[in-house]
């Protein structure tokens, strides 16, 4: 019998790894993340805040901001709602969170709902400007800012990580798993004039 948990699981498998010449944009697949949506229950925000701080040493970000500590990060995606991620934790992350935060919050596993690309390179802003109607200038979209927006009719979530040592900006963009190929294509074509490199997980 086939093991249902094996097989090619990469949503980007078989897609072109380069476009154009050069490495103006380098897209690296982020895989294995545990992703959960945390929503405060009615009148439980303060309790959730305390619990998150005690358990993860994190303050719930206010507004569309992101914060992280170690392997865990929290991104504000709506009023009293956050997307929480944990490196290499997969579906087990949400199961664990349900136990720890399930009192004051609803926890929903979305580890498979999104695919995520980490975007870096000298031309990452020029490329994203072709895709999202959001001002990504360093003063307008600061490190740890979060934007849920639209890229070529696809709902995307975008955040900015800390700059690389050379000052180069780094973003992560995620989209519904079913749209992995469409997003890859949109980024690849937008970045082709600068040179696009894709690194699978």
């Amino acid at each position: 019998m086939v093991d249902p948990t094996c097989g090619p699981l990469c949503a980007f498998a078989g897609l072109p790894a380069i476009a154009g010449s050069g490495d103006g944009v380098v897209a690296k697949e982020r895989d294995g993340l545990g992703i959960a949506r945390i929503t405060a229950r009615d009148r439980q925000l303060a309790a959730l805040e305390r619990l998150v701080q005690r358990r993860f040493h994190l303050l719930l970000p206010k507004g569309a901001r992101r914060t992280g500590c170690g392997e865990v990060s929290l991104a504000g995606v709506g009023p009293e709602s956050w997307l929480m991620t944990c490196e290499n934790a997969g579906n087990a992350f949400a199961i664990g969170l349900r136990d720890s935060l399930g009192g004051p919050a609803t926890v929903v596993d979305l580890s498979d709902a999104y695919v995520m690309l980490r975007l870096a390179g000298a031309k990452v802003r020029e490329t994203l400007a072709k895709l999202v109607p959001v001002d990504l200038h360093e003063r307008s979209f600061q490190v740890d800012d979060v934007a849920q927006t639209v890229a070529e009719h696809m709902a995307v979530t975008l955040w900015r990580l800390g700059d690389l040592a050379g000052g180069e900006a780094v973003f992560e963009i995620s989209v519904g798993r079913s749209l992995a190929r469409s997003l890859h294509g949109a980024i690849r074509e937008s970045a082709a004039e600068f040179g696009f490199v894709f690194e699978p997980a």
């Binding site: 504000g76 109607p133 927006t149």
Partner: peptide, 12 residues
């Protein structure tokens, strides 16, 4: 948007 900030109408 009170949560997301100023956005293009095409998102709404």
């Amino acid at each position: 948007c009170p949560f997301c900030g100023e956005r293009d109408h095409s998102e709404f």
